[in-house]
């Protein structure tokens, strides 16, 4: 793709100077906007660091390894280990559930459904992205949690031999406030986002590419695999990253669903688990000074996690040979 076509050489004309000026002004404007964004982000980062430092100094155990959260106690004890673990595990699980389905839906709308149905489906997915997170949280609390008990119990019985689904104390028979439950809510929340952006990305693949593949005798799936997916890959990864960003930072819905324990628990079906954002939302109201600063420190960690995850995604885009699309990657 040639997204960055170089501008034409202007023919010598009296308007040339004015054109140049217009371009310079506009370019300056966009540059200023970009720099302003960086300044805002830097301000947030500095703010987080400045506010987090006192709490980190007051912490009497290792911040990165401790699995407790009692910052307002004396001595102050808190650590990010369990929170970061829960955040990553629930978000990863949510992606595992949501990404294939979301891209499947996007493909269905662009390449399978008749045009009229596709338009309607597009509207419906977009509108579903419009459901506010507090509503997903309430739905999770009052509807999903009780209805998930038999499902989780089934998973534990059938796939219990996989360590991830193990349930040695048979706790899934009565309770379902697990990382898995949170991941399901998160998946439902990020599905429309990923699917809406993927759809736009897939729809932009030129019709000619599709027709060329079919003309060569490809089946529809082969056409998708060879002509549609490869040029869309960076865009799809972007869509996934936006979804991941929301999953990582989601507060209220996760807070309402998780059983909020402070341990590193790989058994995703058993009650427990916690996430950084949910912990900030639940603990903030009743925190004292150190507590508030400790929560800000955890926000800083979430920030760092997003940074690392994005770096990793960038590496994936590099690896997948999508470099030709843009010099700006």
């Amino acid at each position: 793709m040639t997204a960055l076509t170089s501008p034409p050489r202007e023919p010598t004309s009296p308007r040339r100077a004015a054109v140049r000026r217009g371009d310079r002004v506009f370019r300056g404007l966009t540059l200023a906007a970009g720099v302003f964004t960086l300044i805002v982000l830097a301000a947030i980062a500095i703010f987080l660091i400045v506010k987090a430092l006192p709490a980190l100094r007051a912490d009497t155990k290792g911040f990165l390894t401790t699995r407790e959260w009692l910052p307002d106690a004396s001595p102050s004890v808190f650590g990010i280990a369990a929170l970061a673990f829960g955040t990553l595990l629930s978000s990863a699980l949510a992606l595992v559930i949501a990404v294939p389905i979301a891209i499947g839906v996007a493909l269905y709308t662009t390449d399978y459904a008749p045009r009229r149905i596709a338009t309607v489906l597009g509207y419906v997915t977009d509108m579903l992205a419009a459901v506010p997170s507090v509503i997903y949280g309430l739905w999770g609390l009052y509807f999903l949690i009780p209805h998930l008990v038999p499902v989780q119990s089934f998973l534990a019985r059938t796939f219990g031999w996989i360590p991830l689904f193990a349930d040695p104390d048979n706790r899934t028979s009565v309770a379902s406030r697990s990382i898995f439950a949170a991941a399901v809510v998160l998946a439902v929340m990020i599905l429309p986002i990923i699917s809406a952006i993927s759809r736009e990305v897939l729809a932009q693949v030129p019709t000619t590419s599709r027709e060329a593949a079919l003309a060569l005798g490809a089946t529809r799936w082969e056409m998708i695999r060879t002509a549609v997916l490869p040029p869309s890959r960076p865009g799809l990864i972007s869509a996934v990253m936006l979804g991941l960003g929301r999953a990582l930072g989601e507060t209220i819905a996760v807070a309402l669903v998780l059983a909020a324990s402070f341990d590193v628990n790989w058994r995703v079906l058993t009650p427990g688990g916690n996430s950084i954002a949910a912990n900030i939302a639940t603990k903030f109201g009743e925190s004292g000074n150190t507590g508030r600063e400790a929560l800000i420190a955890s926000g800083l960690v979430l920030f760092a996690i997003t940074l690392i995850v994005n770096l990793a995604a960038r590496a994936v885009i590099y690896r997948s040979g999508a470099m030709e699309r843009s010099a700006a990657v």
Binding site: I44, M241, F284, G299
Partner: peptide, 21 residues
């Protein structure tokens, strides 16, 4: 590149942190 990268990072700001700021 930097702007692009940090905009990505910005998507991960938890809403309450934006509120705090």
């Amino acid at each position: 590149t930097a702007i692009r990268f940090f905009v990505d990072v910005m998507t991960g700001i938890p809403s309450i942190v934006a509120g705090l700021f």
